[in-house]
Design a protein around this nucleic acid. Structure first.
Lengths: 348, 348
DNA sequence: CCAGGTCGTGAAACCGATAACATTCCCTAA
DNA sequence: TTAGGGAATGTTATCGGTTTCACGACCTGG
């Protein structure tokens, strides 16, 4: 690597002070044309660019937001990251990603790291779903002393931060109502892990909806099914093989589209015709939903919009000192073939 | 935000010099136990963490690698990012992502930004596929003056950097050979855009393989099909409707699994049974391949391994001054239902 | 008894920028 | 003629650390 050229080198060679070099860079009008040209030439000749580290140190900010989530390779978080990235970019900021893996609690190590990096703000997505509420609030409060904090989370209980909530009410209500309209009465929920606040809230919301519509809330219709395809396959097999065929549900709602993918594979393996023998509704409206066979009806929580809102609020919070804030982006249902909507009403 | 506490605050309060505080932090043995304890107490009491910006400035390095790619939400790049992230993490480094979108050339702006950030190394994946070779080498050479450069790219022509090559030879050979073994003779390729070096090389490689095996290399069997599902749908429709049914291929190889998804949807819409009426082989071995109907045979280029190798070599290159390096990770074929392997040999 | 070494610690330079403040120069109006 | 003002530029403190080097205290061996 070649010796790095600094602002001092430029200043010396141009016969001016470093202040003037900075002015040229900043397009400060208080520089004579002659000086500007001369300095610019030296800058160009040396391919000089001011060091970001030095600027950060001097400026006391990094123009970088942290995004903490379990894994980016998960499609849902993927979309959050992408949206946050561009929203930050639009505002001259960058996003630094922290992956916590299966560890869904917010560890002291990661808090330390965030502080060390002097981020301009931090957005938590998913990585706090299973954290103990008290631990979580302690961690958020500590972080809050150093930077604005935002979360994309399922909680309706307000945390001490910018809180962008998933619309879990409609996430349960929309598919059930739609299936009900289509004539379904026995509806099952295959979802997540009961260790996660998100999932358990979804499970609770699901049961509430069933009762609200006077539908059977058989506990056998509510199975712990993880988050991925393999889990979906196993869960649906477990559920159905434990039930007399007469008690089988006529429709299944899943925690997400990956689980739905597994469920569909397993059902086909069992010789069922979809959606005639079983209706399916997933969640997240992933890119592949239009390309499954049958195409998959799915709830869209609009993670991109939540991420963009969170980033905007974080950037705003750098200036103002408003600490707390909450909003919900309403979920929507995207109807495709897997729920049997095309088949019209029917009695089961 | 609370006033930031610096090393000076700690030093003053502990009645020592900043040098000693640093020593305590670094677990330098040349500190008396009494001093160590006293300083550590003050550090803990104030929740002090040294500023990364200051450390970076002083140290002259950032312990951060740049990863430049078109979009992370693309599943292929997604996996590259994830693998690079953990490999860097394992070595005490972080990865900063730069997305170039559709702009596959390497712009001077991004080069400037990389230099400004004083990255410890940069890995290009995909974002350079369509760049003009000369422009590319100029940019890489300029960057090379500041940091080690690596690429994950389809080129067999050695670039002036660490060059991790995709195994495009086998990427063409494996599916064709497999299909040939199964009895297929008329094999089509739906792939990418001819503006990309990667795609055009794959197209060329495909034709070469066909000729090598004495199979018809009808130009009608080679269609520009973009990179996503919609493109796949349209491309296969365009290809088949332009051909008399007697000249239809019996198998289709696609640029990637997304295109394959679109192709399968379109073929089903046309009433074909898969894989009986048409065999399909995709590329990338994405997570959903086992869950399509029929499940999708696919080539795996092992992007994760390539990313990990690239990161390792970049980190190594920080120390040594070895500039150029090349390696290939051999591609493999993952056989599932869509190619009809289960159906045994047949004559078409 | 003293040269020489080790240990713990502090002073100060340095990393590469920015920005507040100071200075110089020149022009204009009283 | 000169005070005053503005434009162009320089001086210097500062951001928050790390590191080199020097120094004093204490110990040890000749």
């Amino acid at each position: 690597m070649s010796k790095k050229v600094t602002i001092y080198d430029i200043a010396r060679e141009a016969g001016v002070s470093t202040a003037t070099v900075t002015r040229v860079f900043r397009h400060d009008p208080h520089v004579s044309e002659a000086t500007r040209v001369k300095v610019q030439q030296i800058i160009d000749a040396h391919d000089y660019t001011p060091s970001l580290s030095a600027q950060n140190l001097e400026g006391g900010r990094t123009r970088t937001l942290a995004l903490v989530l379990p894994v980016v390779s998960n499609l849902y978080f993927n979309r959050i990251f992408d949206a946050a990235y561009w929203e930050a970019e639009k505002n001259g900021c960058s996003v630094r990603l922290f992956q916590t893996m299966e560890n869904q609690a917010i560890s002291p190590e990661i808090v330390n790291e965030l502080i060390r990096c002097r981020m301009d703000g931090v957005l938590f997505a998913g990585s706090i779903w299973s954290a103990d509420r008290d631990d979580l609030n302690v961690a958020l409060e500590r972080l809050g002393k150093y930077m604005p904090v935002a979360t994309i989370c399922p909680d309706d209980v307000s945390l001490e931060c910018i809180c962008i909530q998933s619309d879990l009410v409609n996430c349960s209500r929309l598919p059930i109502r739609h299936l009900h309209t289509l004539g379904h009465r026995r509806i099952a929920f295959l979802g997540g892990s009961m260790h996660s606040r998100d999932t358990s809230r979804r499970g609770v919301g699901f049961l509430e909806q069933l009762r609200l519509m006077d539908l059977p809330d058989d506990p056998a219709y509510h199975v712990d099914a993880g988050y991925d395809m393999e889990s979906g396959e196993r869960a649906v097999l477990r559920m159905l093989s434990g039930l007399d065929r007469s008690r089988w549900p006529s429709a299944i709602v899943t925690f997400n589209d990956l689980v739905a993918l597994g469920v569909m594979k397993q059902l086909k393996k069992m010789g069922l015709k979809l959606p005639d023998d079983m209706a399916i509704i997933g969640c997240d409206n992933q890119f592949f939903c239009a390309y499954t066979d049958p195409s998959l009806t799915s709830v869209d929580l609009h993670p991109e919009e939540m991420a963009r809102s969170a980033v905007r609020e974080l950037l705003l919070a750098r200036e103002s000192s408003s600490r707390s804030f909450a909003m919900v982006r309403e979920a929507t249902l995207v109807v495709r073939e897997s729920c049997g909507a095309q088949l019209g009403f029917r009695k089961l």
